[in-house]
Design a protein around this nucleic acid. Structure first.
Length: 832
DNA sequence: GACCTGCTGCGGCTTG
């Protein structure tokens, strides 16, 4: 495609030429669309100039509009609104944009508006609106909460939503949708561009973002907008780290520290290495282990995770950028963000749980078009090695996960209405029309809308006697909040991220180290030694919700753990894993092992034992193992559908079996399968297996088998905070976690008793089903099982497949030392 | 209610 010659393009083209840069095809395509005033989605990997695709497009467009005076034109006049999910990205992108503007001699200003923006900068931006404003979704809503906010957006020409794939699928994405619907209501002339990495549902991603704009043009949202794809194929090299003797490598575990000696040469042979660890606690352990194994790393190795003080993290990022650091051990905290050009090698320790995440991390290395991205996969137990084989093939065929957009988030809607009410107020009729243009709320009905309005103005049915919940007043039909206290509190609570209250950790001598959860600190005695941010610390005391510590030289220390999210194995990776096990099973009977993944051939001894004791399931089979040990009667099932689905399925199966015979179970699960354990034989056999895994009555059986009320209550806490029902305190004034949960629980009970139809209550149950149980996936799994062959085996001892689940379930009752002894004993028995 | 594996992300302490 050749770009139409325009003044704007000439100017930009000349500039590019001067810099000896030639634009990529996808960038030119985007520019053309922007010139033609179209909207759409750019699909490009990070680090290949996706920023410039849209940014330069807006520059070209501006020059075209003002060919004569583009150098002097414009002041106080927002042209481009750049939405990005990360504050850290804003500075970098802003700097790059300023450079271009400077070199083109244009009279544009770039402003950054987020929580880091100083008060004086905010005031400056208010007096003189910059031409380019880089903003987070939260800050964008804060703008909508300002009086006369409509003035700011009058001149807006282009809105870009960067990293849209990161926002889609979360309530932050819903916030973006709402903001877009409002802007579309105000200023129908702007173009909207999303920028996204590759995901499974790109078309849907485009539709979600562009829906309100499609509505303006009265077009059907699923067909509206352009898709521009960068044809830049990243060369990704995946290499497994193999233990020397697979026979001696543990069958279970999650840390993988036994392979630390294999990591040192990789670090040494590479300029810089990022080591991704799945949890914060384990990243602390790896950091220590690497330093112990290779003391020369002192000073060039660092640690980075979400509970480390922001300043320390920035220091690490900065020094990684300049190449001073050779290695950084990190968690998902470095998945996104600053463009780490010098990173040469990436190591993934343990399961990345999904294809997209793995590719994202691989892409952190060789971060330039044309360069090879090199990633090592380090397994934490034997069977996990199969994930490397699965990831390789998934990468080849681009089996990348989708991000499902969230629907009908009433909590976010309530927050949004309060936001509009504290600025200029709103007329329900207009706003209802607007929100219905979003993907999230397109199916909202009149009754639900009335309930929402009633809720924000009168506290709904249950809370009508409490003035605190009557936030919005109606004056001549205008919905408005005039109470300054309510307005202030609301501004402080804009956003959809609800975190557990944490305790800060600070040196007595001053200086913050990071944050830790209350329960962890609560069990420490003064004088106890623990580790945080790679430092050994002695706990002194708690003062004003801050744990005071001093440095320590002790050799032994406790490593904290945090209660984070529990990402399950993705459906795509599970699918590929089943395929690889199928291949492994076939291979046992084959002489010629050419062309077979090395991971599979290395694991041959393990597979032989599995096949001897039980069976290796094929793709169209479900393996069930009945095993009797001194602990009792075990039933192991291996659907490979991820922890959350297994958790729900285990409960449903236990319930269904208990209807055949009165029987109680204890349950255990991991990403590959689950276990039912009982003191009596478990009546599951050929005659009833399909019935027990039937999708029929699934919903009812879930309700009966899981404590959905308790689960909904937990979900409700976040919903209540987002919806503004619970005030989590002024900044710095931390509320206790217990306190927060109990106020949420109280509200939950009130609704359950007096207003069972409450929308937020309903939403919490829906979120349990959709997010926690992954009901959709559970149902699909059961349908798959109905079409599969169920293979029931009776091994006379534990098998390589069930061993990791067994070890995980033992962990619950034992301390780690005892566990280690016990695992050894189990393994010895197996080797007999 | 919390641990023995359990991520990340944002915002707020005014204004007339």
């Amino acid at each position: 495609m050749k770009l139409k010659a325009t003044k704007g393009y000439d100017v930009v083209h000349a500039w590019l030429k001067e810099k000896s840069l030639s634009p990529f095809q996808f960038q030119q395509e985007t520019w053309q669309h922007i010139i033609d005033k179209k909207s759409g989605l750019v699909n490009a990997p990070t680090g290949c100039g996706k920023t410039f695709s849209v940014f330069l497009g807006s520059v070209i467009d501006f020059i075209n509009e003002h060919p004569k005076n583009y150098k002097t034109k414009s002041k106080n006049n927002l042209q481009l609104l750049w939405v990005t999910p990360l504050r850290a990205l804003a500075t970098d992108i802003g700097r790059a944009m300023e450079e271009v503007i400077d070199e083109l001699g244009m009279n544009w200003k770039v402003g950054i508006r987020n929580g880091d923006t100083s008060i004086s900068d905010r005031q400056k931006q208010k007096r003189q609106v910059p031409e380019v404003l880089i903003i987070t979704p939260e800050s964008l809503h804060l703008l909508l909460a300002h009086k006369n906010y409509t003035d700011v957006f009058k001149s807006l020409k282009i809105v870009a939503v960067d990293e849209w794939h990161e926002l889609l699928g979360s309530k932050r994405g819903v916030q973006v949708e709402l903001a877009i619907s409002r802007l579309a209501g105000l200023n129908p002339k702007f173009c909207l561009w999303g920028i996204s990495a590759t995901i499974g549902n790109l078309q849907q991603a485009k539709e979600v973002l562009l829906s309100p704009i499609a509505n303006l043009y009265q077009q059907s949202p699923d067909k509206f907008g352009e898709t521009v794809t960068a044809q830049i194929d990243k060369n990704i090299q995946i290499e497994s780290v193999f233990p020397d003797e697979i026979e001696k490598f543990p069958w279970a575990g999650h840390l993988g520290i036994k392979l630390v000696d294999k990591v040192i040469p990789i670090i040494m042979n590479s300029r810089t290495t990022l080591i991704f660890i799945n949890t914060r606690g384990m990243s602390e352990m790896w950091y220590q282990a690497l330093l112990t194994a290779c003391p020369e790393l002192a000073g060039v190795i660092a640690l980075h995770h979400g509970s480390i003080e922001q300043d320390l993290r920035s220091w690490v990022e900065e020094n990684l950028h300049t190449g001073k650091l050779k290695t950084v051990v990190c968690t998902a905290s470095l998945d996104l963000g600053v463009d780490f050009r010098p990173v040469e090698t990436v190591i993934q320790v343990g399961s990345p749980k999904g294809v997209a995440r793995f590719l994202q991390r691989a892409g952190r290395s060789g971060h330039r078009p044309g360069e090879i991205s090199k990633i090592y996969f380090l397994p934490t137990h034997s069977l996990e090695l199969m994930e490397a084989a699965a990831l390789k093939e998934a990468t080849e065929i681009k089996l990348i996960e989708s991000r499902e957009p969230r629907l009908l988030c009433f909590d976010v809607l309530i927050q949004y209405l309060s936001t509009l009410a504290i600025s200029d107020g709103f007329y329900p009729k207009d706003i209802f029309e607007e929100i219905k243009t979003t993907y999230c709320y397109r199916d909202i009905n009149d009754e639900e809308w009335q309930k929402i309005l009633q809720f924000t103005t009168a506290g709904g049915v249950a809370l009508q006697q409490y003035d605190d919940y009557k936030k919005i007043e109606i004056i001549d039909g205008l919905y408005k909040i005039n109470n300054r206290r309510i307005a202030m509190r609301h501004r402080m609570h804009i956003g959809t991220i609800v975190s557990d209250p944490m305790m800060k950790v600070k040196f007595i001598s001053g200086g913050f180290v990071g944050v830790i959860e209350e329960w962890f600190i609560a069990r420490l005695q003064p004088g106890d030694i623990f580790t945080l941010a790679g430092r050994t610390l002695e706990f002194v005391m708690i003062k004003e919700m801050t744990a005071l510590v001093r440095k320590s030289n002790a050799k032994k220390s406790i490593i904290p753990s945090w209660q984070g999210g529990r990402m399950p194995l993705s459906a795509n990776l599970g699918f590929m894993l089943r395929k690889k096990f199928d291949e492994a099973g076939l291979l046992l009977h084959k002489k010629n092992k050419k062309g077979i993944d090395r991971e599979i051939t290395e694991l041959q001894p393990l597979f032989e034992l599995q096949e001897y004791l039980s069976h290796i399931p094929k793709q169209n089979e479900l393996l069930i193992e009945h095993i009797e040990t001194q602990d009792g009667f075990h039933l192991f099932v291996f659907p490979f559908e991820g922890r959350l689905v297994h958790e729900a399925m285990a409960a449903v199966l236990a319930y269904r079996i208990s209807r055949i015979t009165p029987i109680t179970f204890s349950l255990a699960m991991n990403d590959y399968g689950f276990e039912l354990l009982s003191d009596q034989p478990i009546p599951l056999d050929d005659t009833n297996s399909y019935g027990l895994f039937s999708p029929q009555n699934l919903f009812a059986d879930i309700q009966r088998s899981l404590n959905s009320v308790e689960m909904a209550k937990r979900k409700f806490r976040d919903i209540a905070v987002i919806g503004g029902l619970i005030f989590t305190g002024f900044p710095g004034e931390q509320k206790k976690a217990r306190h927060l949960q109990s106020s949420a629980s109280l509200l939950f009970n009130v609704f359950a008793e007096y207003e069972p139809g409450n929308l937020l209550l309903r939403q919490s149950y829906n979120e349990v089903m959709e997010q926690q149980m992954e009901e959709e996936r559970l149902r699909k799994m059961l349908e798959r099982i109905q079409k599969s062959k169920i293979i029931i085996t009776f091994p006379n001892r534990l098998t390589p497949f069930c061993f990791p689940i067994k070890v995980d379930s033992m962990r619950e009752n034992l301390t780690s030392e005892k566990l280690e002894d016990r695992v050894k004993r189990m393994q010895m028995q197996l080797e007999k």
